[in-house]
Design a protein around this nucleic acid. Sequence first.
DNA 1: CTAGTAATACAAATCGAGGA
DNA 2: TCCTCGATTTGTATTACTAG
Length: 705
Amino acid sequence: MMVRLGQLLASGIPVREVARLLDAESYLVTTRSRSRYAGDIVSFDADRFVSDQLQSGAYLRLPVTASQTSEVILPAGEGTLHVGLGEGIEPKRTIPRTRYLIEVLTELRLDYHLLDGALSDEMVRKQSYKRVYIPSVTRLVFVCNEEGSATFVAHVAETADIEDLSGRSKEELEQLPHVIRLVWTGDPETWKAQLSEFIARDLEQLPAAESVDAWFTISDVAQQVLLTRVWVRNKLHALADQRPEYVVRSGKAWKFHPDLAVQVIELARPVPEDWISFDACWRQLDWPARNTAYARLRAVEQTLGGGHSRVYRYQLLLSPDLFQRLKALSAYERQIRDEWVPMPTMVKRTGKSITWIKKRVEDAQGEGGDYLVTLGSTLYVHPEAAEQITFATSEFLALGDPPEGWLSLGGVQRALDDDSAHVHAQLEKLTTEKVWASDWGTYARWKGEQRILIPTRYYSPSLVAMLKSNRVAQAAQPLGSEYGTTLTALADTSGISRYKLEEYAADYAVGQIGPPARPGIHPVSRQELLFYPPQFVQYAKQRQAERPSSVAPPDWITLSALRARFQLGKKTLKDLADSYIGQRLEPAPTPFLHPVTKREEEFYPPQFVRYVETHQPTRPKAAPDGWVSRQRFWQAHDKHRQWLQRKLDEINAVGQGWCEVYLNSRGNPSRFLHPDCVAYLELLLGLEDNTPESCLDGGLTDLLE
DNA sequence: CTAGTAATACAAATCGAGGA
DNA sequence: TCCTCGATTTGTATTACTAG
């Protein structure tokens, strides 16, 4: 603003005239001249004018160029009455129409050029007509502040018309079809509204007409708002990020669309008095770091919507509403920090993993209760849940180590060279017998050299030895049929799973279908076991036969087999299955008996296989030649991975196929960079290392093309 | 005071191994 | 088949610091 005001004052238009133009005659300062031959010195208090404008929040858009001509604008026509020197006629009132016009142009955000005309002696007018040309909408306005002087708005087809129109008389102007005469109604607002309408009539159709020359540089805006260029630059660039078409590079300088400039000027508007500075707010609040408070502020502001904080003269000021919310949030967070238990502490207390604790907390919390809260990056557990879990897990911490030579289930299975579920079942049985009670126990699990707090059963060497001899004896002499059969033996011989047999046995007992199972001494192991009569065997086989379509059609397949075929992750396949089921696609997955495991399993139709083929996420392959993994790249160039991430985001590497997932050397999916991308990044690195900042600005965008 | 950079911290997602 | 674990990768928040 200062620049344009300076231009205006230096344009050759007399200072008094400028003041009249702006309806700002109160800013004229008269200083008595020291020389008595000279008149008083009249000057315009530009500083006061600008600061008042800033205070009031209403900025006048000053002309792009202002000049004075020695010619009369809209001279009197032939038929006009000449009234001599105008003596004896009452001086006409002044109406600040120019000021109103400038206000209208400011509202419409239009740039304009001002020309002040001369007065001639034989004219009635005491004030000159001004010519205002608005290039973006090709409008020409003739305006005069003197009472009774009409205002004319003309549409200009060619630039040559401007001079032509200026030389005509008012009467001639009125006759022209593309000229509108605007009369003073006595009310500034209606006059302004009419003027605005005439000027902006087809403004919407002409948005692009505004030439880039009229756009604003950073300095232009900075001088308007009286804030530093850095602040303005940041604001402008931030806005321009959202409207890339609103910023151009003109030579060395950036130029911004007037809309952006206006927005920034808006941002510099003073804020209400009850707003509080961010630092004052932070000092009253209870956050450890200033940055934390700043992050919270941004988060809260986002939920509130805009307009609750504003930077004014290097001060980030917050609305009272925002401040209250931050205060409440800080109190809430303080309470969490003081009373709740941080996750790391919980891990130490219980000796369990974070996932484990999380699951228990979720179980512990009631309806709608929120027992887990993340503050910053620490997870806090509600005190009640924490206490409950700590109490419940004290047993884990008390877990001892298994005695030397004792074996876990896996160990027993390896010792017997039999990894079937049968071993597990046998151990289960043995551990219920009092005889063996001291030969097994629950201890902490050992995984290689590591002690893990999972209660795990370990079995003594003598128990294992017994099991071994038992199995040898069993092999020699199978169970006698005259006693009936045990469930385990039946499972082994019938092919029906022991889980199903248990289920059938329960139904058999409840329904009293045949003679009940009776306890007896096993001829080989001398254990007391339950023996089931032949009727039960028959019943079990019947139940088994009744199971829905016991064998799957040949092309139906289980999820796990499908997983092996497509090399898909568990979760990926599960998601695909869920979506298949969710869409109610036919035929639906159906339970069948698995030919090998003899268990009932969910089988999926061949349609699902095709569904997976078409919907599966593209499975990574080995990287083609020349592609480099992200990790290798940032490590090789001694850059942080975030640096790389940022650069890739900037050039939209994923969008243009410069970044793809391939298998890395470990066989895991990882992101790889296209050779071109690598070349570009290396070029970038070279530039960053070797050239000053200024070269980077313009050069890189070209390189990207 | 803002915006940018780098280092660090944390958490979510995922996988295979092992036990029940 | 389900669960838990540690290991690993990846994404994002926090922190510290700097230039302008």
